[in-house]
Design a protein around this nucleic acid. Structure first.
Lengths: 252, 252
DNA sequence: AAGCATCATTGATCTAGATTAGCCTTCAAG
DNA sequence: CTTGAAGGCTAATCTAGATCAATGATGCTT
């Protein structure tokens, strides 16, 4: 990343600022600080680990461009994908906060990320308490995403889970600016990734997608998914995007 | 709680301080502040909701005594328990950070908790940045607990999951001072609660406990669980308590 | 002491989803 | 133009765990 123009840098730095803006209204000074934080960009090819479980880090990373997955592999190779990481998200949250990183994060597409040493984080909490508060809320939001995911995997049928995932992806990709219109997007995952996300097998994902198609809830052409009946998807999957999406911290 | 003696108050306030001490070494001033925070105690009978999903709160709660569960109920009554809440934990994290509370928290035993208005939290981030940093780490730790739980429910067999749960309970209850010795504790849950925690049915929990007993990994007398072979439990369940338990923030 | 509720335990049956094994399409690389 | 790797799709079989239905324990209430 030696030949970055000014415009490139603004674009790269924007997702984190946009993300934290969803929690608090940022002052000019706070925005400037968030710009300055992000200096040390790294470009990553698809399918590469940005962080690897077991390693010791003293920093976290922001994801500035592209997509990634957070995952854990059991001793015998079974894999559980924890979440999809989008621009503006912290790659090292929560795994990298531990002495030995708990989870691996691998790029799905070509990606750009930026390392943030712990010491810079401490400075942020010291000098920018409103940003610190937003970081706390953000970590809580991350926990809630896992909790929602847990409810699905623990207590929902395959049909409900797949509906849940496709709807959640619609909401998150819309917010991140990846959606094509208000109900469709380019699905960033293969069926194998969906299977490892939802705790199902690949053939069963395939069958379930077919049933959702036959029932008229979704349509798929190539990698483009359209949520034909958002309210039906929402009903079967017990997913409430509206409340999950409201992040503003009341009173700050 | 009108007749609280000084000693009672110290005891009630200790768990939160102990919890945050695991992240940073607290100064006298920080300790004093954490004492002052906790004033508004409420006593709760067993089986009562401390917070209820859907309500709007402008505060979170600390749990000062007793145990509780965080859970979500789907429209048709299926329940997923997200986590066990122990003294020193924040009851409203993460559900209560949302406009409409995402999860309910119900007391398992008689309990005491203390409300912390958001405004007090903001003051903490403003005036005590090291505590703010610890709160961020704590929220990240909470997210990691859910992520671990998710891996189990998504990719482990019933046998592995039950082993995981019993071992995790050993670690957490030891830290919270509930363990009887280094390998046994009073199990705070019925088999129905275990089923709703692990995404299994009650009969299957029962059968799986029996198999664990027959295999010599655990023993159960009444409500007392003994982890007879901690390393075997750890092996089958892919659970690494040591790393999960190390929370100190490096460099702060 | 009777009655009742809660929880643990067990067996018989059923089913959602796993596993295994292929085939087909697409597309990049040689 | 061929080849091979990925990914999508499908069918046949199998199994872990659900469901349904009881039976015992235990302890609390009255």
């Amino acid at each position: 990343m030696t030949t970055s123009s000014h415009v490139d840098l603004r674009t790269l730095r924007a997702p984190l600022i946009a993300k934290l803006s969803r929690f608090v209204d940022l002052t000019a000074r706070e925005r400037a600080h968030l710009e300055e934080l992000q200096t040390d960009f790294v470009k990553i090819r698809p399918g590469i680990d940005i962080m690897t479980a077991g390693h010791a880090y003293r920093c976290i990373f922001t994801l500035n461009r592209g997509m990634a997955i957070r995952y854990k592999v059991l001793h015998d190779g079974r894999r559980q994908i924890l979440s999809l990481v989008l621009p503006g998200d912290f790659v090292g949250l929560p795994g990298g906060l531990f002495d030995n990183c708990l989870y691996s994060i691998a790029s799905l597409t070509e990606a750009v990320c930026c390392s943030i040493p712990f010491s810079i984080l401490f400075d942020l909490f010291q000098g920018y308490p409103r940003l610190g508060t937003a970081m706390f809320w953000l970590a809580g939001h991350e926990a809630a995403l896992y909790a929602e995911h847990l409810v699905g995997v623990g207590r929902q049928s395959a049909y409900e889970r797949v509906a849940h995932l496709l709807l959640e992806l619609l909401f998150r990709l819309q917010i991140a600016g990846f959606a094509e219109d208000d109900r469709s997007y380019a699905l960033p995952m293969t069926q194998e990734l969906m299977a490892d996300t939802l705790g199902l097998s690949v053939p069963h994902i395939n069958r379930t997608l077919r049933r959702l198609r036959e029932d008229g809830l979704i349509s798929i052409e190539g990698s483009r998914v359209t949520c034909l009946d958002v309210s039906a998807l929402s009903r079967v999957s017990d997913f409430d995007g509206a409340n999950l999406g409201r992040l503003r911290i009341p009173g700050l």
